[in-house]
């Protein structure tokens, strides 16, 4: 089995505050991991750091992506290497259609892979089915990126982008927040459709609900900047019942 991601004793500061305090996490190719944990435990810091957002200082530790040191890489290099972040709050880009945005992104990646760029017409026929499988209307592709999208449309649009880009490692940051039950089912089946023996998925979630439909190989609990407990999907059920209080002080 190939190791997709290996995080070793990672310590990270943000705004001069110690947020991550020695995170260890290994994800193999084809695995789906979920990270749960109370607000402020460092989940968002971890996913933003993995995607290369500016402003985080790594004070100790190491992150290896497919065996390579990830930390010196620019965000776009990470994206081209196959890391995808599904944003908790997708950003609006007025004046640029969703279709143009994704075609530009896909072609940036195809250039990196020495493939021919895709023309607009080919792109549209290539993506039409994907959009449909997520219940996204065709018109949504022609609207400016995320502008005026409902909460559910934004999240499904993130998944749509993931389908187009076919990443090796997808990090989904609260992809289930703000979704109604129907939308949750659509999103879950979208994620399941993207599970392959080669692709790894790291989901950050507050709710066990998503994990009923997308059954993870591992569930981690993050508290105070550390992963304090790792288990199977049953751990998510237990957390749903008992909350996080009983874990206070664990892993110290």
């Amino acid at each position: 089995m190939n190791t997709m991601l290996e995080i070793k004793e990672l310590c990270v500061d943000f705004n001069d505050k110690n947020i991550l305090r020695g995170v260890n996490l290994t994800i193999q190719a084809g695995e789906v991991h979920a990270i749960m944990g109370p607000n402020g435990s460092g989940k968002s810091t971890l996913v933003n750091l993995l995607a290369g957002r500016a402003g985080y200082q790594v004070t100790a530790g190491q992150v290896l992506f497919q065996g390579e040191d990830l930390l010196p890489m620019q965000p776009e290099e990470r994206a081209k290497a196959g890391i995808f972040l599904g944003f908790q709050y997708p950003v609006e880009i007025p004046g640029i259609s969703n279709a143009l945005f994704m075609k530009t992104a896909l072609n940036a990646q195809r250039r990196h892979q020495h493939l021919a760029e895709m023309e607009a017409m080919d792109f549209r026929s290539h993506t039409r089915k994907m959009a449909k499988s997520l219940g996204l209307e065709d018109g949504l592709l022609l609207r400016p990126v995320n502008v005026g999208f409902s909460g559910g449309e934004k999240k499904r649009n993130e998944l749509f982008q993931m389908m187009i880009l076919q990443p090796c490692l997808a990090i989904l940051d609260e992809i289930d927040s703000g979704l109604d039950i129907d939308a949750l089912v659509t999103v879950a089946s979208g994620i399941n459709a993207l599970r392959t023996p080669q692709r790894s998925i790291l989901m950050v979630t507050h709710y066990q609900r998503l994990l009923n439909d997308v059954v993870p190989d591992r569930v981690h609990v993050m508290m105070d900047g550390r992963i304090v407990l790792t288990g199977s999907k049953d751990l998510a059920m237990e957390l749903e019942e008992k909350g996080y209080g009983w874990l206070a002080g664990a892993g110290q």
């Binding site: 995607a51 620019q74 990470r78 997708p90 609006e92 880009i93 994704m102 940036a108």
Partner: peptide, 12 residues
């Protein structure tokens, strides 16, 4: 945020 969103999708 806009810049990072674009760069995360592979644009420099």
């Amino acid at each position: 945020d806009q810049l990072f969103y674009c760069r995360q999708r592979g644009l420099n």
